[in-house]
Write a protein that binds this DNA or RNA. Structure first.
Lengths: 346, 346
DNA sequence: CTGAAAGCGCTTACAG
DNA sequence: CTGAAAGCGCTTACAG
């Protein structure tokens, strides 16, 4: 990956072999360009013989569009993100776009986004932390659409976002748990500085309040399995006043909580404790867990993100900002005692 | 993502503002170029004021190196691949490279690789299917290093590869199972056309043979959970002659097999059946499974892949081809009866 | 150390 | 429909 490579064949080479002009070669590779079928054929034949592929960098230099979308992820720990990445790459490829991946372990996306900008990407999907509003503005100025995925910005109106219905979903879980006869309901939070946790916690609290209840206990799981385990230990370690249900703000944590409850504390789920998660990761459906959870619908969310990116540059209007909330649904499985009445909500 | 964007600021703009030549701007952004500290400072100040980022496409056009590596994955179903992607992206970023993602659901990588080639990538990591030897040769000719990840090519000597010790690992599992006193040992295969399955099955058969044993039963799980479940049902459905151990060629399948055994067939693991997997995915360590498995060491494998890419273009020698096998290790957990003697092997 | 200029490989008006 | 030429935004000899 070190020495200059200039061995790739160029349109000029193809032109020479085919005995036509270089512009003709370019046209032969441009859908909808005005070339005779005969010319196109001739060029293609020569191209195949030489193994020619147009140089995407040269093309984007002249067209001003790179057909690349940048994806920034903080890590693939969230088990929903492999599916997101896969779906996004696939959707983009269909439209002739490609995905440039960035993984940021730190809290700051700005530096990474600056790197992305060098590629003159046609859009950015941010599934990691958030963006400084300064850089967000730079992107808008450069007319590069940015969409936050599964998070929103504190100062709204600057960057578009896609997320599922965190508030509504959490409220529905509260309703479900109350209807299931639970009376000592706990909450295990994700990262407290995340917009997802803020919204889920708020929705949950409001949902409980609507029935005259409130969280009986609360701990922080930070969206990681180890911390969630400790939260479970803290919340369920003593028999006295032990919660009879817990809403865990993310599936990865919820799975860890179930394991802790069962294998470390000897509790039965859902007989002793009901557990409900949030995300709808594939592992939640595994027979060992059968986790009841609120599904974030990956495909609709990805599709919405792509639509936002495309919409932002349609027309010459300044980048339009929009927050879309994709509805999810509660998937009832076996980890939580269900309401007696068969209805979903009281 | 549709209309041409030309609003980005260029080196020319910066030069004008700083009152210097455009080449000076370029040098100020090139590490090791001959510029005075004063000039560099002046340029940087102007650059910051304008929010200038050098255009990577223009740069790669002149340098002939894109600093992009293509990654082709068939899907992120294999639970090892999120970690691979993350680690690879991180490693590359450190060296100033970036990852262009391609997801291929079909069997054919050729078309996708052709798309990648348009970006004049400095290297390709192929974690999906394999490459036609024709295209492999084209890559070599264009001096683009390709490395197969977790697979090898039928016709060797054409493309480099990195994999873990499938043969040795499977043989070690055979030894481990025999030493554990198992006498009716079954095998659940991955995709039968995959090099990984070929190697694991061979290593396992040889390992058993060394102890005068052989597979008592065999089914195909195709590396997916649903098919693995069916394989388990077929193999363990009848009590008569039921195997007392099974080596499952991939962890995702092994986890599904454990669930099937326990929850559908009412068998105990490992009391009734020992289960051993292969991969070392994070989920294998979860308390509900505690799967004994042979670990494919992600980081060393990724590092080896990066080293291969870099080595291939060092010097002007034609792309060197190498197959590296990274040693893994058997992680003993609770899903398989261990040998009585505390040693790892008989 | 600095600037003027050529060239990387395309696309796209502009003529014909 | 086809070709000649300008231009996209850089890097890098080449002079000074």
């Amino acid at each position: 990956m070190d020495s200059p490579v200039r061995s790739a064949v160029t349109a000029e080479d193809v032109a020479r072999l085919a005995g036509v002009s270089q512009s003709a070669v370019s046209r032969a590779f441009t859908p909808g360009a005005s070339v005779s079928a005969r010319m196109r054929q001739r060029v293609h034949d020569a191209a195949v013989r030489l193994g020619y592929q147009p140089n995407a960098h040269a093309r984007s230099l002249t067209t001003g569009r790179s057909r690349i979308v940048g994806l920034v992820l903080s890590s693939l720990d969230n088990l929903l993100y492999p599916a997101v990445t896969e779906r996004l790459a696939l959707r983009l490829q269909q439209d002739g776009y490609h995905l440039l991946m960035f993984v940021s372990e730190q809290r700051d996306s700005d530096d990474l986004v600056r790197q992305i900008l060098q590629y003159r990407v046609d859009g950015i999907v941010l599934g990691a932390t958030t963006l400084s509003s300064g850089l967000a503005r730079s992107c808008a100025q450069a007319r590069i659409p940015v969409v936050l995925f599964n998070r929103v910005m504190a100062s709204s109106g600057v960057v578009s976002s896609v997320r599922s219905d965190n508030v509504g979903g959490a409220a529905e879980i509260a309703r479900f748990l109350v209807a299931g006869g639970h009376r000592r309901i706990a909450y295990i939070a994700g990262r407290e500085d995340s917009s997802t946790n803020l919204e889920r916690e708020r929705g949950f609290a409001e949902g409980l309040a609507a029935f005259g209840q409130q969280m009986q206990a609360r701990a922080v799981g930070n969206y990681d399995a180890a911390t969630a385990r400790e939260a479970a230990l803290a919340l369920f370690g003593r028999a006295r006043g032990r919660p009879d249900a817990v809403f865990v703000a993310g599936d990865l944590m919820a799975l860890s909580v179930m394991d802790t409850l069962r294998h470390e504390l000897g509790l039965r789920v859902p007989e002793d404790v009901s557990v409900v998660g949030f995300d709808g990761v594939p592992q939640a459906a595994w027979p060992s867990y059968q986790l009841t959870t609120f599904e974030q619908p990956v495909e609709p969310m990805v599709d919405a993100a792509v639509r936002l990116l495309q919409g932002s540059l349609a027309g010459d209007a300044p980048t339009a900002v929009d927050d879309v909330i994709v509805p999810g649904r509660l998937i009832q499985r076996a980890s939580a005692r269900a309401p007696l009445t068969e209805g979903r909500t009281p």
